[in-house]
Each structure stands twice: as C-alpha cells, then as structure tokens.
C-alpha cells in the first residue's frame, strides 16, 4: 500500500512538474494598439499577442495571458503573478537592474510631433524656451528630462498620452515626444491630428530610450530565457515574423 502511494505521488509530482513546464504566463496591459489591445469580443489581439502565442507554440507550451497595469508590471513579475512581461516593454538600463530581457522583439522609434511646418527640430537648441509634453513614466520623459530640460526646454509631464495630445491641439504645448507608432496610429491618422506632423527624424539614444522592446523575465529564470530566445530567433529566421508584421504595420518594425 505504502509503495503504491509513493509511486502514485511520484507520478503526480512528475505530472504537476510537466504541467507547470508546459504553461507560460505572460503579463500584458492591453491598452496599446496595435501591439496589444482588446477586440470587441474581449479577446486579446495585437502584434505582441501573436508573437507570444507563436513563441508558446514553438516551445510546446500553453500561453496564459494575465492582464496587469503597466506601471505595476515589474513588481508583479517578481511576485510570480506571471513568468514574462510581453507588453511593449522597452529594454532600458534602469529596468535591467531589476529584471532581465529576452532578445529584441521590435524597436519602434521615438519621434517628436508638432504643428506641420513649424520648423521645430528635436534638439535642445531648436526647442529652447518651448513647452514639450511627455507622458509620465515613459522612456521619452526620461530622455527629455535628461537632455533637454537642463538646456532650457520646458518639459511638461502628463498623466496619460491622450492628455498630452489634447494640450498640443489646444495650443498649450509646442511639441510632444512619444513613440512614433503610437503618435501615428493614435493621433496623426485621426481627424484631431489634422494640421500636425512629425517634426525631425527619429530620436536615438541607447542610454535612455533603450534598444527596443523585449519580454521581461525574472533574472533567475535562465532556462526560460534561453528557450524564449531560441524561439524568437527561429520565428525571425523562417519568415513568420515578417508575416505577422505585415498584419499590423507597413514598415520595418524590427528596426536597428
């Protein structure tokens, strides 16, 4: 009898181990189309979601999506509420102190938006004495505060991106600095974005703007990182990445 129980418990232990190995839980804040958002049916959709599901498929695992607010992602990852953050999280030095990242998923550029033909450029010299709006907690805020604020540019942080755009339209701001995809999808392509345009080229800075977005992982989960990196590499290699990209973007979102 004892033997049976022992044998049974070994089997169950093995079963539970294999179950946990076959499930990957991703944390996501579904408020950032076209990367992650909710369809009217309530289903999660977007480029990140497709990539995540493809990664799970290649690792023969079940994907479980856990919704979480963006600013609470890193504490929740550490508290093991999920195993990875797959929510357009830029890989910055500051975040790398807390967690590790998979290899790059995509790198959308940062660009400035201003009135069309304003002549403004995303440089401290051109913006001196002007008011530039940024969303609080974004890498763009860090960039503007690091490089522009000390040189006399008035940086105004806002609670969310919609407010930044509203004040640009209202005329309180001379320019805004944000993710280029967000600006074009969420503002410039909409009716209220009429009369506004990108000003200047992509803003590049490895230190504050990072090198693109990846999947945030706990530092100790080395094996999971190796598996996910392998899956990402194969997705890019066999052309699946390009196919998924075409669904959402008309430009190269992988970037440099």
């Amino acid at each position: 009898m004892k033997k049976t129980i022992a044998a049974l418990s070994v089997v169950m232990l093995a079963a539970s181990l294999s179950v946990s190995a076959k499930e990957i839980r991703f944390g996501v804040d579904a408020s950032y189309a076209p990367f992650e958002s909710k369809a009217t049916s309530g289903e999660l959709v977007g480029f990140d979601i497709d990539l995540g599901n493809e990664i799970c498929k290649r690792l023969h695992a079940d994907c479980k999506w856990v919704e979480n607010d963006f600013d609470g992602m890193i504490p929740a990852l550490k508290a093991k509420k999920f195993d990875g953050i797959l929510s357009s999280m830029s890989m910055t030095e500051q975040r790398m102190k807390e967690i590790s990242f998979s290899s790059k998923l995509f790198n959308t550029p940062t660009r400035m938006v201003a009135k069309a033909h304003s002549g403004l450029l995303p440089t401290a010299a051109s913006l001196k004495g002007k008011r530039v709006g940024v969303e609080q907690g974004t890498i763009q805020e860090t960039y503007a505060k690091t490089y522009w604020a000390p040189k006399g540019v008035d940086i105004v942080p806002y609670k969310d991106q919609n407010q930044v755009q509203a004040d640009l339209v209202a005329g309180r701001l001379d320019a805004t600095l944000q993710d280029a995809v967000e600006a074009s999808e969420g503002f410039l392509k909409k009716p209220e974005g009429k009369g506004f345009d990108f000003a200047g080229k992509n803003v590049v800075d490895k230190k504050t703007l990072g090198e693109g977005a990846g999947i945030g992982l706990r530092k100790e989960d080395v094996a999971l990182k190796a598996d996910i990196d392998k899956a990402i590499a194969s997705i890019i290699k066999d052309g699946t990445y390009k196919k998924l990209e075409k669904k959402y973007f008309d430009f190269d979102v992988y970037g440099k």
């Binding site: 600013d71 609470g72 890193i74 504490p75 500051q94 807390e98 609080q136 907690g137 942080p157």
Partner: peptide, 13 residues
C-alpha cells in the same frame, strides 16, 4: 505626482 515619478523610476511602489 512626485510619488508617481519615484514609483516609475524605482518600482518601489
């Protein structure tokens, strides 16, 4: 607002 800044900079909510 400063507390929110500190939160997003350190993740020590």
């Amino acid at each position: 607002k400063v507390a929110r800044d500190a939160n997003s900079a350190t993740y020590d909510s």
